[in-house]
Amino acid sequence: MTTFKPSHGVSHPVVAKAKRTMSWRQRITTAIRRFALATLAGLVLAGIVHIVTVLLIPLLSERDAATAYAALGTGGQAELVTAQTADLPAPRDADPALVTAVCSYDLSAGPMRVVARVGSLPLGLSLHRRGGGVGYAITDRAAIRGVLEFVVMTAEQLDERLARDEEGETTRELRVVSDTEQGLIVARVLAKLPSDRPDAEAMAKGVACGLAD
């Protein structure tokens, strides 16, 4: 018995030590597993945040062209963005040979009619939705008898108009659906020579945009 006692006394701390190292190892593995799991969850969350952010930027941005030029062309006539008097940011990536005039629209009051008289210089009209992206583009080659004309409306307003159309009668107007209520109509005229610039400016400013009805 006496021979056992010391050995027992010695073996007890060894077992405890082994137990302790076991628990340390276990603890480290659970910590690592937990860390890996948390990292994985973080990465999944990062993916969701990434997608949501990219989709939200166009909706929330206040630096886009439609916001910057919201005050231009509300009087029924397109206005030049290059006008030195207005304290407006210049469009980025703009061609110096282009003359750009803008009509901002808000379809909550009703559809808008855009009328442009074409001339000898190339003219392009495009619809830019609020929040980036071109909704529609047309050039003066589509003009009928020297006039390019279309009506911008929302999908609901198009339904209303279709319901109001006389049966069997064809409508002449070109209807363009905008999926946002606000946006810009951009008229661009290419001034091929510096001497064309006054003509190009007159053409761009001559684009009329008022309520359709």
């Binding site: 990219v54 989709l55 930027i57 166009p58 941005s61 630096r63 886009d64 062209a65 910057a68 030029y69 940011p89 210049a90 469009p91 980025r92 990536d93 703009a94 750009t100 392009g124 495009s126 830019h128 929040g131 980036g132 992206g133 071109v134 529609y136 583009a137 047309i138 050039t139 810009l184 951009v186 661009r188």
Partner: peptide, 20 residues
């Protein structure tokens, strides 16, 4: 969506597909 977000972050007026 990435191009749209890029365009919305600045005063961009990209050329329309039929325009140029």
């Amino acid at each position: 969506p990435y191009m749209r977000a890029y365009l919305a972050r600045g005063v961009h007026l990209p050329l329309g597909s039929g325009e140029g």
